[in-house]
Design a protein around this nucleic acid. Sequence first.
DNA 1: ATTAAAATTTAGACAAATCTAAATATTTTT
DNA 2: AAAAATATTTAGATTTGTCTAAATTTTAAT
Lengths: 229, 229
Amino acid sequence: MNFSTSEENYIKAIYHLQHSTELVTTNELAAELQTKAASVTDMLKKLKAKKILNYEPYQGFTLSEEGRKVALGIVRKHRLWEYFLVQNLGFGWDEVHEIAEELEHINSPILIEKLDAYLSFPKFDPHGDPIPDINGKMEVTKQINLIDLELNREAEVSAVGSQSTELLELLRHKNIGIGTVLEVIRKFSFDNSIEIRIKNFPPFSISQQLAQTLFVNPVYGSTIVGSIS
Amino acid sequence: MNFSTSEENYIKAIYHLQHSTELVTTNELAAELQTKAASVTDMLKKLKAKKILNYEPYQGFTLSEEGRKVALGIVRKHRLWEYFLVQNLGFGWDEVHEIAEELEHINSPILIEKLDAYLSFPKFDPHGDPIPDINGKMEVTKQINLIDLELNREAEVSAVGSQSTELLELLRHKNIGIGTVLEVIRKFSFDNSIEIRIKNFPPFSISQQLAQTLFVNPVYGSTIVGSIS
DNA sequence: ATTAAAATTTAGACAAATCTAAATATTTTT
DNA sequence: AAAAATATTTAGATTTGTCTAAATTTTAAT
Ligand SMILES: [Mn+2]
Ligand SMILES: [Mn+2]
Ligand SMILES: [Mn+2]
Ligand SMILES: [Mn+2]
C-alpha cells in the first residue's frame, strides 16, 4: 500500500503521540499537525478505511499493527536522512529537521537500504533518537530524564525531547549536545532550576523547562558521593 | 517564488522540449508528461500568470527568462542527485532517473549547495549531461551524434539521448556507457545500422535507433584512415 | 440529574490538479 | 476557397486535502 505525503505525516504524528498517551485524541493530533480538528476527522476516516487505524468515532484512536509498521518506516527514513545531513554534508544538528521532514517522503525502499549501508548502519540519529532497522527494530536506551538524575552522578546526554529550532539554538549556546558528559550539582526548589557542570567547565544553571527536554545515560562506575564501595 | 511539484515538472519538461523545437506546443508537452492537452492548457494559464511563460492561446509557448532560471535550478538538483546516487550509493546509471525525479523537488537551497560541495562540484551527471552550477552555467560539449561520426575515428561516448529503462538496459547489455571508447567500422544503408568496435573488443552492430541516442566526443589525435599527416 | 463546557463530528464550501466531452481555432487537403 | 483533419481551448465534473460554521456527543460542574 502507498500513502500520500499528507497521510504519512498523519501516521507519523499519531505514532509519536502514542508514546506519551496510549489513546490519541482528535484535538491532540490537530495541535501536533497545526491543522483543524475537522481536517483530522476527515483523515481518520480515510486511514481507518485503509486499516491503518483502530478508530471509533468520539473514542480516540491508535495505530493498527500495520499502521505502526508504516510509521516505523517513515521514522527510519527521517532519522537516516538526518544522520546523513549531519555526518556527511556537515549540517548542524539543529538545522536538519525541516529538510528531513521533506526527504522522509521520498518513496524508494532500495534508496533507503543503500543509504543505510553507505552510512554504515547507524543506530542513533543526531538527536540521540534510535533509528529503526529495516524490520522496525531499534535499540532501546535506558535513558532517564535529567530531572531524575541523582546529584553528583556523571551522565552522558543521549537525546533531546524536541527538535524545535529554539531548543536546539539554546543547547548550542550552552554547549550541550548528544554525548556531552555532565553532572547535576544542585537543584533549586524555588523554580526547579538545576545547576549542572559539564566535564572540565565551570558550573552553570539551566531552567526546569530545559532540563525536562534532556535525556541522559548515567556513566557506569562514576563517583557517587556518599555511596559505599 | 515557490512552485508545486506539478508546476516544477511542467517547467522542466518545457525546458527540455525547447532544446529540440524552439516553440513548444500543447500536444508535445502533453505527450512528454503523459497527460491530456486540456490539463496542459490549465497549467499554461497558471504559469503565464506567474510570468514563467511566454504564451498566447493557440500560438505555442516558450519559457520566460525567469522560467529558464527556475528550470535550470530543477535540472541542477536532478543531476546532482543522480550523481550522488551513482557515485556514492552505488546505483547503476540506469536505476537513478526515477528516484532523482522525486528528489529534484526537495526544496532547500542550502542542501543542494552542501551536496554539490560534498560531491566536489561534479560537471556531468552519470548520463553525460552537464550539471548547471548555482548560476545556471554549465559546460558545453561539442559532442556529435554517433550517426555523424566519421568511419574509423575513435570517439568517447559522452551522453545518451534518453533515460528510458529500455534504452539503458540495452546499453548495459552491449557494454556501452559514458566514457566507452569506440569507433564506427561500417554503415549499412539497408537499415541504417552501423557496425562499431569498442576498444579491445570484437566489432558488433547496433540499430539506427540506438545509434541516434548516443553522443560522442571524437578522441583528439586518433588515427583517421586516409587522412594526411 | 440537569446544566454548562469541551471535544468531536458533520455539512457545505473551496483551491489545486486532473479528466472527458464539447466548442473553437488553426492547418492541411481537396 | 471550402471542406476535412488536427490542434487547442473551454465547460463541467472528480479527487484530495483543507477550512468554517453548525450539530452532536461526551465530559465536567453545579
Ligand atoms: Mn513530513
Ligand atoms: Mn531526529
Ligand atoms: Mn519530477
Ligand atoms: Mn541524467
